[in-house]
């Protein structure tokens, strides 16, 4: 009990430090990097959904992008058709994603490994295609326009003029902190332990009284809620549409999770920063070599795929695992 409580305090302190760090960055960075950092935080929430699902409970999903789309479209419909504020819409979006996750989880609890991977991949392709199918509701290929709106007056009076990118970042920050706090607490709890037991040995965990399919569905629901939250924030940058949530988004989340460390929250943060900023870094290096347009377009994808394979073969624990190991050796 006391151990859990001390974990709780530690998690709270880390979350506050994280919030302060991002807040300082939000004052220092230029608009472009503010926008990029905001995207990284949104994807951080999405990558956490994979840390919970794949890292903790051992189920794979290539369809997190589809759940992000569910969140995004639910919020867009709530804002545009019901005239709700974005904050209410965000809550509705998370609820919609939780429900979608429940449906998905009921099917997914019976599947494992490659079956689950293939099924979620089909879902990642099928859900966004619904937007073009029911064009009148979901806005077709173009999508629906929503955004974070203007920063509230009290914030502007507190911080001077707040740019739109800065507002995106500051509006995303509380959700990222909540996601961080929630994830670190649940992974250190009895629930988190039962997820890991399920991953490591289904038979043993069932003998210890863990209901396998109920637990699997529960993980799916929680993970979907995270993906939905990431999705609505991602859509609030401007557009909710099939082109915003392509299959490559799902794969990007998975890449971030694996590169950073699929079992680590710190890894999720490192991974999401990596997938967002790596293309920028590669671009700024390649500028000196004046590459052709197609090399400039495809090189970042090539390098991140290469890193993905190298990580899986050489260091499946990702960067966070590597850091942990280095610290232990020191």
């Amino acid at each position: 009990m006391s151990r859990t409580r001390s974990y709780g305090r530690k998690n709270l302190i880390i979350s506050i430090l994280f919030a302060v760090l991002i807040f300082i960055l939000s004052i220092k960075l230029d608009p472009y990097n503010l926008g990029q950092l905001a995207v990284a935080l949104m994807l951080f929430i999405g990558v956490l959904s994979i840390v919970l699902l794949t890292g903790a409970s051992g189920q794979i999903s290539l369809g997190q992008g589809a759940l992000m789309a569910v969140g995004g479209f639910a919020a867009a419909l709530a804002i545009l058709n019901l005239g709700l504020s974005i904050w209410v819409a965000i809550i509705l979006a998370v609820i919609a994603a939780l429900l979608a996750g429940l449906l998905l989880g009921i099917a997914a609890a019976r599947l494992s490994g490659p079956y689950l991977a293939g099924t979620t991949l089909v879902i990642a392709l099928a859900i966004p295609s619904l937007a073009t199918r029911f064009e009148s509701v979901f806005g077709g290929d173009v999508g629906l326009n929503i955004n974070f709106g203007n920063p509230p007056a009290w914030l502007s009076s507190l911080m001077g003029s707040v740019g739109y990118e800065q507002w995106q970042l500051l509006a995303t920050l509380p959700f990222a902190v909540l996601a961080l706090l929630f994830t670190s607490n649940i992974l250190n709890s009895r629930t988190g332990r039962s997820w890991r037991a399920l991953r490591d040995n289904e038979i043993a965990s069932s003998l210890n009284g863990i209901d396998i399919s109920q637990t699997k569905i529960f993980v799916f629901v929680i993970s979907s809620g995270f993906a939905g939250l990431a999705g609505v924030l991602y859509g609030l940058r401007g557009i909710v549409g099939p082109s915003v949530y392509p299959i490559s988004l799902s794969l990007m989340l998975l890449t971030g999770a694996v590169l950073g460390g699929i079992r680590s929250i710190l890894g999720a943060l490192i991974g999401s920063i990596l997938v967002v900023f790596l293309p920028d870094v590669i671009d700024s290096i390649m500028k000196h070599f004046s590459p052709s347009e197609q090399v400039a377009n495809y090189l970042p994808a090539m390098i991140s795929s290469l890193l993905l394979i190298l990580t899986v073969v050489l260091n499946p624990g990702g960067i966070a695992h590597g850091l942990h190991r280095t610290r232990r050796h020191l």
Binding site: I60, L62, G113, P114, A117, L251, L254, T255, V258, A301, M302, S304, S305, L306, L308, I309, V312, V313
Partner: peptide
Amino acid sequence: PVIASLGILGI
């Protein structure tokens, strides 16, 4: 291996 094969696809 599924993740590895996705990496190969990307490359």
